[in-house]
Amino acid sequence: MLEWVTETIYNLGYVGIGFLMFLENLFPPIPSELIMPLAGFVVQQGKMDFTLVVLAGVVGTVLGTLPWYYTGRLLGEKRLTRFCDRYGKWIGISGEDISKATRWFDHHGNKAVLFCRLVPGVRTLISIPAGIGNMELVAFLVYSKIGTTLWVGLLAYAGFILGQNYKVIEGYIDPVSKVVAIVIIGTFLGYVLVKFTRKNATR
């Protein structure tokens, strides 16, 4: 995997980064945690421009979200869950993954698309419940772009800073993503609590 990703970036440049990030959204086993830090390392070598690297990653990612968005919109949750339970092993997605992403979307609404772009494991799949929920395409693209820019920029910058040690980023992503998920859930629960308290105070 690493060798193929490396050759694609070095041979195709920005187009290669966009292509890999597009595929990463279609097939989650291809990790952005490897693609973008490597691209950041190439920037450190003086072979690419940081802004263009991030732009390529964002464009590829956002384009890669659309097939899942329209799949969710056209097929619905039940049919997708059944399909992934039967065939999901070939693309690394299970019916439970679909259900988890749907719960995120139900709890957080449209903002879940932004937040989940920062959480590995659901960042790709959140496009499906957005489609299932008939989220407006413009809003979907805007929230996706914001969240994706933060995620891609962070990974590329980490690779730039770490240089040849960029591969260690992949090992740190899992615990960090859990912290991000806890913060997001905590913020949401705090918002609900404040709203509930104010509502009771007005009675």
Rank of each mutant, 00 (worst) to 15 (best):
W4I: 02
T6Y: 12
E7M: 06
I9L: 09
I9Q: 09
V15T: 14
L20D: 13
L20V: 10
F22G: 07
L26P: 04
F27E: 00
P31K: 13
E33C: 02
I35G: 02
P37K: 01
P37Q: 05
L38C: 04
G40V: 00
F41N: 06
V43M: 03
D49W: 04
D49C: 05
A56H: 12
V58H: 00
G60L: 04
G64Y: 15
L66D: 03
W68R: 03
Y69A: 04
L75W: 15
C84F: 13
I93E: 09
A101G: 08
D106G: 06
A112R: 13
F115N: 12
C116L: 09
V122E: 02
P129I: 03
G131I: 02
N134M: 14
Y143F: 15
T148E: 13
W151E: 13
L154G: 11
Y157R: 07
I161Y: 09
L162Q: 00
G163T: 05
Q164G: 08
I169N: 07
I169Y: 01
E170F: 06
Y172C: 12
P175E: 08
V176W: 03
S177I: 02
S177Q: 04
V183E: 08
G186K: 15
L189W: 11
K195I: 09
F196N: 09
T197K: 10
